[in-house]
Nucleic acid binder design. Structure first.
Length: 828
RNA sequence: GCCGGGGUGGUGAAAUGGCAGACACAGAGGACUUAAAAUCCUCUGGGGCGCAAGCCCCGUGCGGGUUCGAGUCCCGCCCCCGGCACCA
């Protein structure tokens, strides 16, 4: 069991005296080696023993190495891991590499190297930097998503989804980045540009692609947000991204096209009597069919124009709505009017049915469009408060139906239900739900990714690769440049492409696209439980013990990518009975971004990256860690300022002095004063609470404050508990000096295996308290009184105060506010 | 435009509706030193009164409000950061 007891051995007299000055570079390598030699951070399952799984989002190992910004994530997690271990938990804290994907491939291409060489090299550098920084990982659990032992199971999961009908192939117009030379998922398109090339507008390309049916989980992904402890903004981003809308899908027949109809989705079916025109997306399949000869030229020009526009242009237009009349009409089944059908690019093919009913009296966009093209603007909703409807804008609020036949007088919600019921009875529509989120497009036409384990056979069609033939190995290619044609470079490797159909034994071709890197990271948290297991993605016993993750920490930028995908996979696994939990990360925290001193993003090209290596060399890893913790609340963004590291190094220097004096005095049991004892216990109480709440900045401030007190005492006045509890609390934050102090204090066991100090609540109780005395809410005096003094006694005392008498200026107190042991406010 | 998160000294920041600025950084002055570094001590929101101990006024983006009492709660603005962006 990795849990220590307080050994009260005295320091051996043969030991060398403590160095006068704290020199981190002398002690850090020593303890690093010692911890490694003794496998200090090795973790095993301990059934029946409480576990704690702390996890940081595993990084893509870049050639630039880690910056002090990355450590703002890793150091706090390390403190939590070390703290939890001391507090009696069996802690899992491991690290791995999100190694597949475009960044790694692009980097290698740029440098004329191969990712299979660069990735391990970069990962090794990250690992060295993390060790240098004193982070406690069980490195025997290191994983790499680009190793066959790992991606074999990524492929296994793909097949699991495929067999459950959750992976499918579909043709369609997809986002394409011509710098990445691959198709992208919706989530990877940011402001109309590629998420990796934020200046490069994406275009559309028609290709057949693989998708994961994440939309099938839309409702559960929303519902289950209720029960998890995540930052509210992240939950909100997920809800917005999924974009659930309740409404109705209805259909209107097209005049002069018997049997043809326009299906559309609306969230306001109650306004249907006010529908004066309809709008189709320019890409809508009906457009070609219904456009009249007279309008054909104009419509074709508009459609071509819309197609030519890049997404960024379509977004950046100043929202001036444009459109063209098709010449065709639809029949509004409710108002019995024939209404014109237009096309306009403000209607998106990718949402709902790609067609809308326009109710310009109740919708801003429809209003603007109707105004511009002189279309009718019927008003069918009156404000709920009885005022009259505005004429210069749409009334988008809910209200009362007017000019609406059988809906007249109904409240919006009742009218919605009535229309849905009517449509259902007359079989032209029904109440329905639509989502903004699209299915997750996972095909990538790139080399450095997990091969999709699928075969195409002439007789059997799409055939999954049997489990016992996994992994489908990524072939070793010298020239893996993306072609840009929409085909993966793997298509150029005949030995890879040509295979045998496992069903009929005939010739088959392999899928040559690779998986989106986010597939690899959708299950890695499970792999850490049993990273070397060969009979499944994870060993059940280990998985049951460690999972789910107790604390997950990473950047908010993954709100709608990784965090959504991993949740979906977890739900699929739950449904198959593979695991027994529905959410992978019940507690999530986002660390704040560290900007460079100039307020910009740290990047090599800007030359403003500060490396942990440089800081460790100059100030030591412990001082660097302390500044990472002290610079502000860890969830908030701030600018890097190296002067702070100098400050925390100076603090450690002072702790060193106090401990050294104590050690040199022979570690006396001493005779600490009541005040010293009280302060020691209060410090434990406060620091414990703050570390639990991840308020590392104030935890450290408490320790600094206590040091200022301790520095004034003689060794005998300090006493053993005072000094040892202090060192124990410092150890998770500053593991190297913590260890050094502990050994100097006479202990043989590592401090990181010891127990977190406990405080005696009785000893933290104050006998006297300071009571603030206010007159009319302004502080006029302070009284030192015994704790628990009665209101009456306190008030009497306050009224005797000279300052109070002076400020009352002869007036009689009207009222007295009394807060026990805190405050007396005399209102006159 | 909509949805979040913020706005407190020269700087990073503290503060269950109850002493605003803890703890630090930077700065100033002093001690030690031949000197410097390091270290230690003192001061450090603004303004005013006082020889002094001390006292008074103002102050948490701006304007209102609730309250005995507001950095904290409510209403209306302004600014910064992040997300979404014609989602029918």
């Amino acid at each position: 069991m990795h849990i220590g007891t307080l050994e009260l051995t005295t320091r051996s007299t043969q030991q060398k005296p403590m160095e006068e000055r704290y020199e981190p570079n002398k002690i850090e390598p020593k303890w690093r080696d010692e911890w490694e030699r003794t496998d200090l951070y090795l973790t095993r399952e301990e059934p029946g023993y409480p576990k704690f799984y702390v996890l940081e989002m595993f990084p893509y190992p870049s050639g630039d190495g880690l910056s002090v910004g990355h450590l703002h994530n890793y150091v706090p997690c390390d403190v939590i891991g070390r703290y939890k271990r001391m507090a009696g938990f069996n802690v899992l804290h491991a690290m791995g590499w999100d190694a597949f994907g475009l960044p790694a491939e692009n980097d290698a291409l740029l440098k004329g190297l191969h990712p299979k060489e660069t990735v391990p090299r970069y990962a090794a550098n990250f690992k060295r930097q993390l060790k240098l920084s004193g982070c406690a990982y069980d490195w025997t659990r290191e994983i790499n998503s680009s190793s066959p032992e790992y991606y074999r199971w990524t492929q296994w999961f793909f097949l699991m989804l495929y067999k459950r009908g959750l992976a499918y192939r579909a043709m369609g117009s997809q986002w394409w980045c011509d710098l990445c030379r691959t198709i992208l998922a919706n989530e990877q398109v940011v402001n109309g540009c590629c998420w990796r090339h934020t200046e490069n507008p994406v275009t559309k390309k028609d290709l057949e692609q693989w998708f994961f049916k994440i939309t099938a989980y839309a409702d559960r992904l929303i519902e289950d947000l209720e029960g998890i402890d995540w930052p509210e903004p992240i939950k909100l981003m997920q809800r917005n991204w999924i974009g659930r809308s309740e409404g109705a899908e209805l259909a209107f027949p097209i005049s002069d096209h018997p049997g043809k109809e326009v299906r559309f989705f609306t969230t306001r079916p109650d306004t249907v009597f006010g529908v004066s025109f309809m709008v189709l997306a320019p890409e809508h399949p009906l457009v070609a069919e219904i456009t009249t000869a007279a309008q054909r030229a104009a419509v074709e020009e508009y459609v071509t124009d819309a197609r030519r526009q890049t997404e960024i242009e379509r977004l950046s237009t100043v929202k001036e709505k444009t459109g063209v009349f098709t010449g065709a009409y639809a029949h509004n089944r409710f108002s019995n009017m024939d209404i014109p059908i237009w096309i306009a690019d403000y209607v998106l093919m990718g949402y709902g049915t790609g067609a809308i009913m326009a109710a310009p009296g109740e919708d801003d966009r429809d209003f603007a469009f109707a105004k511009k093209y002189g279309l009718e603007i019927p008003v069918v909703t009156a404000p709920a408060d009885g005022s009259s409807a505005p004429s210069d804008r749409a009334l988008t609020d809910r209200g009362i139906a007017i000019n609406s036949g059988f809906l007249n007088g109904m409240k919006t919600d009742d009218a919605i239900r009535a229309v849905c019921k009517y449509a259902e009875e007359h079989e032209f529509g029904k109440a329905t739900v639509t989502y903004r989120m699209r299915d997750w497009l996972i095909s990538r036409q790139r080399y450095w990714g997990c091969p999709i384990p699928i075969l195409y056979c002439k007789t059997d069609g799409i055939v999954p690769v049997p489990d016992d033939q996994l992994p489908v190995l990524l072939p070793d290619m010298k020239d893996y440049q993306p072609s840009g044609t929409g085909r993966s470079p793997l298509a150029n490797v005949p030995e890879f492409v040509n295979a045998i159909c496992p069903k009929c034994g005939g010739p088959a071709e392999r899928e040559t696209d690779t998986l989106d890197g986010f597939a690899c990271s959708s299950w890695y948290f499970l792999r850490f439980a049993s990273p070397h297991y060969n009979d499944g993605p994870f060993e059940k016993r280990a998985g049951d013990y460690w999972l789910p993750v107790d604390l997950y920490v990473g950047g908010a930028e993954h709100a709608v990518m990784h965090l959504l995908y991993a949740r979906m996979w977890t739900k699929v696994m739950f449904d198959t009975g593979l695991i027994s939990f529905k959410e992978p990360f019940p507690v999530l925290r986002n660390q704040g971004m560290i900007w460079a001193g100039d307020g910009q993003k740290m990047s090599k090209s800007k030359g403003n990256v500060v490396t942990p290596d440089a800081m460790v060399e100059k100030y030591g890893a412990d001082a660097l860690r302390l500044w990472e913790l002290f610079m502000g609340p860890f969830e908030e963004a701030t600018n890097w300022n190296e002067d702070g590291v100098f400050g925390t190094a100076r603090y450690l220097q002072r702790v060193w002095g106090v401990v050294r004096r104590y050690v040199e005095a022979g570690c006396p049991t001493g005779t600490p004063s009541a005040e010293t004892i009280k302060r020691a216990h209060k410090t434990v109480r406060t620091v414990t609470d703050q570390v639990e709440r991840m308020r590392f900045n104030t935890a450290l401030a408490t320790l600094m404050d206590q040091l200022n007190y301790l520095a004034k005492l003689t060794p005998a006045e300090l006493g053993r508990f005072t000094i040892e509890s202090y060192v124990l609390m410092l150890a998770p934050m500053a593991p190297y000096v913590g260890e050094e102090f502990w050994r100097e204090l006479g202990h043989n066991k590592s401090i990181h295996l010891e127990a977190w100090p406990k405080f005696d609540a009785e000893l933290t109780r104050d006998e006297t308290v300071t009571v603030v005395v206010q007159v009319n809410g302004k502080v006029r005096d302070r009284l030192q009184v015994p704790a628990g003094m009665s209101e009456q006694a306190n008030t009497e005392l306050a009224l005797k105060s000279e300052a109070v008498i002076k400020n009352l200026d002869g007036k009689a107190p009207r009222k007295v506010i009394y807060v026990p042991d805190k405050l007396v406010n005399i209102v006159a």
